[in-house]
């Protein structure tokens, strides 16, 4: 029974996540950027822009310049999350890819580091008066959700082992459109429900910062306005009117 319920939940969550993100990204792609507005000094070539974006996405370069504490906690959280996600690939691959095998041990430490990073980020929302002022209820809930996901996951590692073989069978079944039963475990149910909730919230929330950063004109435009004319379709229409 739980297997069917979670199968439906995850199919719905995956659809909403992919559909919602796809819709959003299509929207970003279709909206023109009528003026060249890179924050300078900026790279003058496309290759330079790729490097700038890579530094931004991998190292959070601007945040590093902006606030060391936020950078430290934020980067710790995101880097750990990346390892945790890699560790979880073992539930979706058969046979397990060799590099997924290799990061298994790191994944556990990353889970702990992720909680530390999230707690640091949350502490700032209480301790720094400026950040407290701008925090909304959803900012707090988002951190609570992520921490609960991490803690429920770690609990299955350290406190109450879930039947990982059964879990893997369930997810492989989902991917082959052949739903399998899900092992009975309250922590597992909590963990999976929260993950599904996160997937559903993603395209409607500030989590859009993940695709958004790639579409930020101040970061993704090369600085070459004198050499190359840059004009949006709606702006070009003004030329024939005049």
């Amino acid at each position: 029974m739980a297997g069917i319920l979670f199968a439906v939940l995850f199919y719905a969550a995956a659809l909403i996540l992919a559909g919602g993100l796809g819709f959003r990204i299509r929207d970003y792609l279709r909206t023109p950027a009528p003026l060249r507005i890179p924050t300078t000094p900026a790279p003058t070539t496309g290759g330079g822009v790729v490097l700038r974006m890579a530094r931004e996405v991998i190292f959070f370069e601007s945040l590093f310049k902006g606030s060391l504490w936020t950078w430290a906690f934020g980067w710790l959280f995101h880097a750990s999350l990346a390892f945790v996600l890699m560790r979880h690939l073992r539930y979706f691959t058969q046979p397990v890819w060799f590099w997924v095998d290799a990061v298994q041990a790191f994944g556990v430490y990353a889970g702990l580091a992720m909680v530390m990073g999230l707690c640091g980020l949350w502490a700032r929302r209480f301790l720094v008066d400026r950040v407290r002022y701008i925090s909304t209820l959803s900012d707090h809930l988002m951190l609570a959700l992520l921490i609960l996901i991490a803690v429920s996951g770690l609990s299955m590692k350290f406190l109450d082992h879930a039947d990982v073989i059964g879990v893997k069978a369930f997810f492989l079944g989902l991917m082959q459109l052949d739903p399998q039963p899900l092992p009975m475990n309250p922590l597992l149910y909590l963990h999976l429900s929260l993950v599904a909730a996160l997937m559903i919230i993603f395209p409607f929330s500030k989590l859009l910062h993940a695709p958004g950063v790639f579409f930020s004109p101040s970061r993704n435009q090369p600085d070459n306005p004198r050499e190359h004319r840059h004009i949006a379709p709606w702006a070009e229409k003004l030329e024939s009117e005049a």
Binding site: S62, T70, W71, V131, D139, G212
Partner: peptide, 21 residues
């Protein structure tokens, strides 16, 4: 919002991290 990608992305993307504060 349909004419300026900057406006659309910037209104969506902020996570209230406070780096600018």
């Amino acid at each position: 919002l349909t004419k300026y990608r900057s406006l659309k992305v910037y209104l969506d993307a902020c996570v209230h991290c406070g780096a600018c504060s």
